[in-house]
Simulated scan of single mutants.
Amino acid sequence: MSMPFYVSPEQLMKDRADYARKGIARGRSVVVLQYDDGIAFATENPSRALHKISEIYDRIAFAAVGKYNEFENLRVAGVRYADLRGYSYDRVDVTARGLANAYAQTLGTVFTTESKPLEVELVVVEVGREPAGDQIYRLSYDGSVTDEHGWVVMGGQAERLAGVLEGAWRPGMTLSEVLGVAVRALGSSGDDGEPRALGAAQLEVAVLDRTRPRRAFRRLTGALLEDVLDGAGTLGAGQGPSSA
Rank of each mutant, 00 (worst) to 15 (best):
F5M: 10
Y6N: 08
Y6G: 00
V7K: 12
K14F: 05
Y19T: 08
R21P: 02
R26E: 15
G38K: 00
I39S: 13
N45E: 11
H51N: 14
A61G: 14
F62G: 03
A63Y: 08
A63W: 10
V65H: 07
G78E: 01
V79N: 04
D83T: 03
L84E: 13
Y89W: 06
V94Q: 01
R97E: 15
G98L: 01
A100I: 01
Q105V: 11
L107D: 06
T112R: 15
E114R: 13
K116H: 09
L118C: 06
E119A: 10
V120N: 01
V124I: 15
V127K: 06
P131H: 09
P131L: 07
D134Y: 14
I136V: 15
L139Q: 02
D142G: 06
H149G: 04
H149Q: 14
V153S: 04
M154T: 09
E159L: 11
G163A: 05
E166H: 12
R170S: 15
P171H: 05
V181W: 04
V183E: 07
L186V: 06
S189C: 03
G193M: 04
G193Y: 08
A201Q: 11
R210N: 09
R210E: 05
A216Q: 02
T221F: 03
V228M: 08
G238N: 08
G240F: 02
